[in-house]
Design a protein around this nucleic acid. Structure first.
Lengths: 343, 343
DNA sequence: TCCTTTGGCGGTATCGTTAGGATAAAGCGC
DNA sequence: GCGCTTTATCCTAACGATACCGCCAAAGGA
């Protein structure tokens, strides 16, 4: 229409409210309200402006909106890897729970920002919550950062953590009773006739400490010796060799293995089968988590189920409650033994 | 110090540059530059301000910074689920590649925003790229949205897609040669003596169409009939039943199955074993992807490897090149057959 | 006919930060 | 001692959207 020296003749792009306002012959404020669907603007003008807006493919700039409203619509999902520098986000457990969190958050119109943090600075969590970038934070796992989390939770409300809830704990945690879970796994093994157990997993993070404790509880109750504890990192690149080493060095009297996670259990079964050791015939193996794949493998994994769908939803519910100013308590879900073929 | 009617006597929190500037006796601009480590500020003042800043735990507001600089430091990772409304982000393939993308992006100082999009509106991608929220977009999978992607890629540079690269295609895609991959899988099955193949997977998305084509290629080259094609959705909640149904209805002459993904292959093996059909003895099965778990299961999965670590890095490299204004071409990685036990 | 009410919109300040030109204080040579 | 450059900081104007206040006209009541 208008003659410009733009060789393309492209109409100037509508990038801001003001641009659109000029076109519509109103002011920016009016456009803002019209697009927000506010009743203060007459239905007629509102529709006219909305039509104009999507004719020009206009979307309000989110940064500006967020700066102004002090709300971002973004939830941070953070995986602290303090104890485990080599672990990657690609770990199946993280990814599974992350998927469910993403489902729950996007259904509620929130976006999800992902960070994998190695807490080298002690104020890593403070830095995240005060960045003015997030409406709330979900932490996947307590790692060995219990103190740091407690410190921040004392003043920052919209924070929910996947992990264990200890008596008197300040921060809101959602998770299963890991100690009970450990006990269920060990009880299953004992019931099957196992007399000498090994626990494969590191005993440094709160959750795994609890699982280990649960195994000890069950053994003690049955009058059996505590488990042989074998450190196993979750980092997938070294885990395979580590487990192979453990399996090779396994004392002959060991007839049951309680793995700290499903991934460890699967790798362990693989290593045992490779050496001609039958599972569960010669050695029974239990996992922990009940990842979706655990029932698809052969032998199907006997494991302790953490209901990640329910858990993710509980985390999101608690977070929204806290964002809304309410007080959401910790949730401890009961673990469930899923008896299948491996033990 | 100062008497306030704050009952706690809490020192007023330092939230803004201006607050800190007042404390330091300089202006906000000076503080901004000092914290950014600019040389224009004398080393002395710079250190003084930085010390003051972390005494008060001050972090600049990211929204304001981003609005001002027009850079967000955030990359959007989007999973379009056009063809598959029931598929969830918790799908292992998405999660695996997402994990590697997260690793690569965070190493480069970028944050990652995750969206799971069901493209009900045709302008879903436009909406994302013009939201003013992202420095770039990574798309995982082309779904059935090829046209929409091409349209946006024509004007929006920092966009990289995981998927197939067709001749003449505008958008930058990183992926493996799916057709070649399909051929490799089928050739392996034929080589093992299979004469009648089934292809388990939907033939609607570009990548799976190509894989299916590759299988047809190999069969044709060997003078064998095209595969029996059995629709299998990726949505994990219905996939199990669907596969069980396919297996039950399988014609007796079928002696080889090329699954469209590892997850489908694992479920299929499970279903076969449940029915007393030996794998690979009676029916051989190949997967596609080579997920980390594929070598941990029994029988170990023979599959076509997509190197997701390299692939994720290639996507991120291409994206940064494009953000920097350079022109990154599509990357087509060669698929590799990983012969293991299942075929 | 005049005054009040109310609907509909305009104007302006603000969110917290950064960039760039202006400004003041030193340092230097003559 | 004066002018000029350098150095260190200040001041102001954005970035783009929203919230609040207030104005104007049309409608309704007396």
């Amino acid at each position: 229409m208008t003659k410009t020296n733009d060789p393309e003749g492209t109409p100037p792009r509508v990038r801001t409210l003001a641009d659109l306002a000029r076109l519509a012959g109103v002011t920016a404020g009016t456009v803002s309200r019209a697009l927000a669907g506010k009743e203060l603007i007459s239905a007629e003008t509102r529709e006219r402006i909305q039509k104009l807006a999507d004719e020009h493919g206009f979307r309000p700039n989110q940064m500006a909106r967020r700066l102004r409203t002090q709300r971002t619509g973004v939830i941070g999902v953070v995986v602290p890897l303090g104890h485990e520098r080599r672990q990657h986000l690609s770990d199946p457990f993280f990814m599974t729970i992350l998927g469910h969190l993403a489902d729950a958050l996007t259904e509620n119109g929130y976006d999800l920002m992902l960070s994998r943090i190695i807490p080298d600075a002690n104020d890593w969590l403070e830095r995240i919550v005060t960045s003015g970038m997030l409406d709330g934070v979900l932490l996947i796992g307590q790692s060995d950062q219990f103190e740091a989390i407690e410190r921040v939770a004392a003043t920052y409300r919209p924070l929910v953590v996947w992990g264990s809830a200890l008596p008197g704990q300040v921060h809101c945690a959602v998770g299963v009773d890991n100690r009970m879970g450990g006990r269920l796994a060990a009880e299953r093994l004992i019931e099957r006739g196992c007399r000498r157990l090994a626990f494969l997993g590191e005993v440094r993070t709160l959750e795994l400490i609890e699982r280990h404790r649960g195994v000890c509880d069950a053994l003690a109750a049955a009058g059996l010796p505590p488990p042989l504890q074998l450190d196993t990192h979750l980092a997938s690149d070294i885990m395979a060799d580590e487990i192979a080493g453990h399996v090779d060095a396994l004392p002959p009297e060991v007839d049951g293995i309680a793995a700290a996670s499903d991934v460890i259990a699967m790798r362990t079964i693989r290593a045992l089968v490779d050496r001609g050791i039958s599972v569960p015939g010669r050695i029974a193996v239990t996992g922990f988590d009940d990842l979706p794949l655990s029932e698809s493998i052969v032998p199907r994994l006997t494991t302790v189920r953490q209901d990640l769908v329910t858990g993710a939803r509980a985390m999101v519910d608690a977070l929204f409650a806290r964002i809304g100013g309410a007080d959401a308590p910790s949730v401890e879900m009961p673990p469930v033994l899923v008896p299948r073929d491996s033990a």
